[in-house]
Amino acid sequence: MLNIIVCVKAVPDPNDADKLKIDPVTKSLPRSDISLVINPLDSHALEAALEIKRNDDAHITILCMGPPPAGNIVKECLALGADKGILLSDPAFAGADAFATAYTLAKAIEKNGAVDLIFCGMASSDGATEWVGPEIATFLNMPVVTMVNEIVENAGDEWIVKADYEHGYRKVKIKLPAVLTVTRNLNQPKALSFSGILKARKKEIITWDLKDLGVPVENVGLKGSPTIVTEMTRLESRREVEILEGSLQEKVDRLIKILKNSGVVNV
């Protein structure tokens, strides 16, 4: 049986992005109750695991670090077909950069036991960093391929995958146990089903805190993060804008004049 871990992150709903803006006065992020959703790329990571489970004997564990409300994201993953959920939640974990996040997730993966495959989304939509997957691999001394867009062969413990590369792709052979970070081109995540939601009720979600992981407090969260944010500034507008007035056709005509005046368009 393949033991698969899928790392998921609860991120602010991208549809609420305009609520999450630097306050020009306090130069910090306003407190708000923005709803959390699964990081979109992580749903492709989950789907990759589910595809394997449809054809093979596999056990899927969801691993998520976040505040207690992130448990809803774990539940959603169970309803989509994962077998077990682990939520890493402790005030000490707050403020973690990619390094401290990867360290904490790696410790939880060690504690959880045998693992053959770890899937992560290739980036998170809120921080846009891509480091957690490969850093987990380093902490667990596993090989990794980032930005996987196709699984070519997955028989046995040597897999062949394709990964994004400049103007083409990279074909890679990788020995399990391994970490794969995935792109949105790998698959099409399926929607929640009612029967999935019913089944998920019986599935287990474990919550682990700092004590459960047994790691020093200075290795996690803000304290365990090599990088810190020192400053936030609101960007000032750089240009004097002219809003074109008039009817739609008047605006079209005026725009074409502007295009002509630019000297780089032949119209």
Partner: peptide
Amino acid sequence: YGGMITIIC
């Protein structure tokens, strides 16, 4: 977040 962030190590 609609602005610029400075990060140091």
